[in-house]
């Protein structure tokens, strides 16, 4: 999608009353960020393919009754986009509240406390409580790997780990099993991580995980920090080789 071809055209559109021009093929999210317009995201990560799963990046497009995922919608000529409105704010809050209610997030005892994209998103969206009843499901923690851990309690199913493992590391150890609320991240054919023959132990999944779901072992409360700077670099290198 990002390949610049000879058919690239210039497009003009309006985002939040600002007249903007961009290249055809660019998404609303890319163009908004290039113009310092903030759209909240969780599943999107620059350098990975677009997933369109979390729906946090929803925007309004004039003359369309639906909401559109900014990360997965290409700009078109004359488009008028609104990235904030009471309706969008309400939906974004609901989405994040549902993420909290779906699994078990106990920030006070979480290794990612203070360095977590989900926790930060709650603060940013001014979510001071969750209006949906918590499910309190009983979830597994996979401790089988020598130095990494998957805690299903904290997973928001953004699939960043699945994408980095398949697309960047080329291992495709990780995948998603099940449907709906029963979906879960697995290794190979749903085996313990430590038994995986395909995992190279690169740790990329840990670093792209926005929450405390994928962490290094031996970290205590608040000690787990992530580094994602490697990703745009590796993606760029790959494109240069092509």
């Amino acid at each position: 999608m990002s390949a610049v071809t000879s058919t690239t055209q210039s497009i003009t559109l309006t985002i939040d009353d600002k007249a903007i021009s961009c290249r055809s093929g660019e998404t609303i999210l890319q163009v908004a960020r290039e113009n310092n317009i903030d759209i909240p995201t969780l599943c999107y990560l620059e350098g990975l393919t677009v997933w369109g799963g979390c729906r946090l990046c929803m925007v309004e497009i004039a003359a369309s009754p639906k909401l559109h995922a900014a990360c997965a919608t290409e700009c078109t000529e004359g488009m008028t986009v609104r990235t904030t409105s009471p309706r969008l704010k309400q939906y974004r809050k609901m989405i994040v509240e549902m993420l909290f209610a779906e699994r078990n997030h106990v920030c006070s005892v979480c290794v990612s406390n203070g360095h977590c994209e989900l926790q930060n998103m709650a603060t940013k969206l001014e979510i001071d409580h969750v209006r949906f009843p918590y499910r309190f499901p009983r979830m597994e923690v996979d401790n089988s790997h020598d130095y990494m851990r998957l805690d299903q309690n904290r997973c928001i199913l953004c699939a960043r780990c699945v994408r980095v493992c398949g697309e960047i590391e080329g291992a495709h150890t990780k995948d998603v099993k099940g449907r709906g609320v029963l979906s879960a991240i697995i290794h190979d054919l749903d085996e313990p991580w430590g038994d995986s023959q395909t995992c190279t132990g690169c740790g990329k999944c840990v670093n792209v995980c926005p929450t405390g779901a994928l962490t290094h072992r031996g970290t205590a409360v608040g000690e787990m920090t992530k580094k994602t700077e490697f990703l745009p670099y590796l993606t760029l290198m790959r494109e240069v080789k092509l």
Binding site: F100, N104, H105, V106, S108, V130, Y134, F136, M139
Partner: peptide
Amino acid sequence: TGNVPAMRNY
């Protein structure tokens, strides 16, 4: 949120 006391709910 229920926090730590609610960890028994599992």
